[in-house]
Each structure stands twice: as structure tokens, then as C-alpha cells.
Design a protein around this nucleic acid. Structure first.
Lengths: 142, 142
DNA sequence: TTTGGTGCAAAACCTTTGCATTCCT
DNA sequence: AGGAATGCAAAGGTTTTGCACCAAA
């Protein structure tokens, strides 16, 4: 299911959560910033422009809820905060992290899908997901 | 170069750092706990047994220094703290993170080495390293 | 001797929590 | 109306920092 504003209501309702203006706004921001990997603080700074009264705790609680509902995914780029992106469910993308400027870019692939089956057998580990980060230097920093 | 206690002195000297008893002890602990992924707090608790007067800040500073010198690597398993392991430089291993019990196991591979060359061309990204985490369920938790 | 390292305590961060109030349904 | 969500401020946990003292080179 797509994670649009229209679906938010039914996703929430299906899980006995309420549709609030704050939740709508935050999803809206995530939709308008696809490709970014926003931290709670960054979402807060953006959402404050629309709703100056919103609290940072609400942003944290909302992002946590969105992860629980599969709307977002948590990321970690070793920069001392948790980052979030929409979980589209379709494209399996990974991240290229520049060691110099810190820029994070994405690329799509399915390279590891058959490798996962191997792990199941060799290591008796039932894989549900994987995350790859490549470290190196982006075009500008090389 | 191997990361043994004997080499520590020359690695440090080559970078104008001093060989202190605290640094020796901490490297010793990392060597005795290969396969573990210790946090600063955990290293602190172990090292305190040998040197009760050591400070937590020293452990943090030492682990940071070791990373800078390529002696250790920082890991992040999304459990709210940074973890460290010796950087042997040879075996390229990755982690299997159990979503239920949190256990982290390792496996070796070289699967992505040729894939890195691809990235260089397609995304103009010069890869220096990569990190893969597989999420799923370990043998006991399936 | 000189420079860097340590321990301590305080500060800095990011994130979570308690509680009274407000808002959905 | 009733329960869930919010905002605020306080608390929690991890990591960093300032500074006086100490130790390695």
C-alpha cells in the first residue's frame, strides 16, 4: 500500500490510532522530502513553519509510530542521530555515504536477494531484511 | 600490520601518541574479546577490574583514538550506543542482527567486491569500504 | 622538561517520559 | 463522553569537554 496522505487515515484507523493534524503534517513533510534522510530535529524545524506550536516530543513520537506502522524506516549514518525515510516497500535501495562531506546518496539493487537464501542455510539465520552502506568519496570529494 | 600489544607502541609513536597503561589495557581487552562488539561502557566495566581508578572518559577517548588509528572500527546496531571491534583489516565480515533477542553474529564474505567497481562507474562514487547488516531471526528465535 | 594523557565533574546532546490539557472519534 | 494525542518541562542515557594533576618521552 502506498504511503500517501489519503492512506494515512486508514492505516491509523486499522491500528486504532487517531488522525491528527500533526501526523498529517509530518507525513506531508516526509513526502515532500523523499530522497532526504531527515532527523527528528530536522523534521521539527520544517514542521514548525506550518504549525509553530508543535512540540519536538510529538515529532519523535510520530516518527516512532510511523516506523511501527511501516510508513517510515529508521536509518543510522553514524552522525549521532536517528534519521528517517519513507518506506516505500518497493524499491530496495541502499546508501552511499561520503566520508568527507557526509552526503548520502542512494542506489537501487537486488544484488543480495539470492545471497540471503544462502545465509538461511549456512548460518541458520532467517533473514527478513538487509541494509548495505558503502563508504567512500562522492564525485565532488574524490 | 597486526594489532597486537607489541605493535601498539609503534603505531602510537608513529603518530606522536604515547603508550600509556590505560591504552595497553584497553587493547588487551579488545584482543581478549574478539567476536564481541563492546560498547564504551562495557569496556569500562571490564577494564575497571584491572585498573579501578580508570575513568570512563579515558575509555571513550581511547576508543576514538583507536578508530582514528585504524585499530578498531565503530559499529552501530541501533541499540543506542556505539560499539567497537578490532579492525583486523583482513577478513571482511558482516553482521547478522537478530530482531528478537538482539544477538549479533558474524560471517565472512567477499560478495560485494566486484559490485563496488560497478558503483564507481555508475554512480561516480569511489568506494573505500562497505558494511552490510542482515536483519532477521537467529536459530533460537525463529 | 615538555607535551600529551588522565580523572573528575560538569556540560552537551539526543531521546524519552510524566502529567495536565486538548483533540479525535 | 472517553480515550488517545499533544505540549511542556523534566529526566534519562550516552558521549564530550574543561581543567588541574600526572606520566611518558
Amino acid at each position: 500500500m502506498e504511503k500517501t496522505l489519503k492512506n494515512l487515515k486508514s492505516i491509523l484507523a486499522a491500528n486504532n490510532y487517531k488522525l491528527t493534524s500533526q501526523r498529517k503534517l509530518i507525513l506531508d513533510i516526509l513526502l515532500n522530502n523523499e530522497g532526504e534522510h531527515l532527523s527528528a530535529e530536522e523534521v521539527y524545524n520544517i514542521v514548525k513553519k506550518e504549525d509553530p506550536g508543535i512540540g519536538l516530543a510529538t515529532v519523535y513520537r510520530t516518527l516512532e509510530l510511523f516506523c511501527e506502522l511501516g510508513i517510515t524506516q529508521q536509518l543510522n549514518f553514524d552522525d549521532n542521530c536517528r534519521r528517517y525515510e519513507l518506506d516505500t516497500g518497493e524499491d530496495h535501495h541502499h546508501h552511499l555515504v561520503c566520508s568527507k562531506c557526509g552526503k548520502v546518496t542512494e542506489f537501487n539493487d537486488k544484488i543480495l536477494e539470492e545471497f540471503e537464501k544462502d545465509l538461511q542455510i549456512k548460518h541458520k539465520f532467517k533473514v527478513t531484511d538487509h541494509r548495505i552502506k558503502f563508504y567512500g568519496y562522492c564525485e565532488e570529494c574524490q
